[in-house]
C-alpha cells in the first residue's frame, strides 16, 4: 500500500496551480498541530478533542492522497466519538509512524516544486 497517492497529488497540483506550494505548507503546519493536539487530548482523556483533531487531520490527509493515514485518523475519530479511548494510544502510535512517512513525502514534494 502506498503512503501517498501520487496521482491524486498530481491532480491537486494542476488544480491549485500557484497555490500548490502554499497548500502543502499549510498541510504540514496544520497536521503537525493536530498530531500534537491528539496526543495531549489522549493524555487528558478528552474524547471530544481526540475526535475533533483526528477528524480534521483525516480530512486533509485524505484530500492529499494519504489514504492510510486518513484511515488511522478515522479510527481515532470514532474512538473519540464513542468515548472509548482505551486503545487510542496504540492506534495513535501506529498513526504517528505513518504520519512521519507522509510528512517526508509531502516535504519532498514541497522541495521539488
Amino acid at each position: 500500500m502506498t503512503h501517498v497517492d501520487i496521482e491524486m497529488l498530481t491532480e491537486l497540483k494542476e488544480l491549485m496551480e500557484d497555490e500548490f506550494k502554499n497548500l502543502l505548507q499549510t498541510y504540514l503546519d496544520d497536521s503537525e498541530k493536530h498530531v500534537i493536539q491528539i496526543q495531549s487530548a489522549i493524555n487528558a482523556g478528552d474524547a471530544n478533542d481526540v475526535r475533533g483533531s483526528a477528524h480534521s487531520l483525516k480530512g486533509s490527509s485524505g484530500n492529499l492522497g494519504a489514504t492510510q493515514l486518513a484511515e488511522f485518523c478515522r479510527q481515532l475519530e470514532f474512538m473519540g466519538r464513542d468515548n472509548e479511548l482505551s486503545a487510542a494510544q496504540s492506534t495513535y502510535d501506529t498513526m504517528l509512524e505513518e504520519y512521519q512517512i507522509v510528512k517526508k513525502i509531502i516535504s519532498g514534494e514541497l522541495m521539488k516544486s
Partner: peptide
C-alpha cells in the same frame, strides 16, 4: 465552511475554477 485550512483551500480552488 471548514475549519481545516488545507481542505478549504482545495474546495475554494475547485469551486472558483
Amino acid at each position: 465552511a471548514d475549519d481545516n485550512d488545507a481542505d478549504r483551500m482545495i474546495l475554494n480552488a475547485i469551486v472558483q475554477k
